[in-house]
Amino acid sequence: MSDLLSLRSATKRLPSGPRLLTILDRVDLTIAEGELVAILGPSGSGKSTLLGLMAGLDRPTDGEVWLDGEPLHALSEDELALLRRRKVGFVFQSFQLLPNLTARENVLLPLELGDLPDAAGRADALLAAVGLSDRGHHYPVQLSGGEQQRVALARAFGPRPRLLLADEPTGNLDGATGAAVLDLLESLRREAGTTLVLVTHDPALADRATRRVRLRDGRVESDTGAPAA
């Protein structure tokens, strides 16, 4: 298995009032193609920041982040945007659908941005895959939480990203809905062969992962289930 993502001594500091706060402290982590990684840790341990670095949403203060052979720490905002467009998908705790767009348009947008062929047909197929064929014309505010997250899944998988990042994807859902969303996430991932990194508090969710990375105070405390190098 080849490496998809690798962080080398990645450090993130943020200003907090007059001081600099170290959120991530020299994190080394390598994730191989096709892994399902859960990132665990208490509040404030740096989970979301780590996710941001992996996606190129944020840049490390120090250290390096490599995604599919590209140095995220050295790319411009534009280059990062293009890279995300092609290779990275997201699912968030608060769904993060665009409120002005219908469900179908939300799914369609990344396909259009990537200028992919038959974007419309693909969006419809994805909506069908998440069981929302008949709700495509609804706006997010007209959908339930579970439905919104299913739209978010369809959107995230649309451009067939190499890497999917999920931030507490079931955090805002009740148990049954959360489980259903997780089933869907896993089946889509298997089908597309996508590498999945998810941040969670939820032990049930963590149990589904092949590998568990535990953070504490911005450092990797433990890393279990990593494939043998």
């Binding site: 293009l82 995300r84 467009r85 990344p110």
Partner: peptide
């Protein structure tokens, strides 16, 4: 701001 962040996240460039 939220929508803009999402658009950026989906790969829209700042100038776009």
């Amino acid at each position: 701001l939220d929508s803009i962040a999402i658009l950026r996240c989906l790969g829209m460039r700042p100038r776009e």
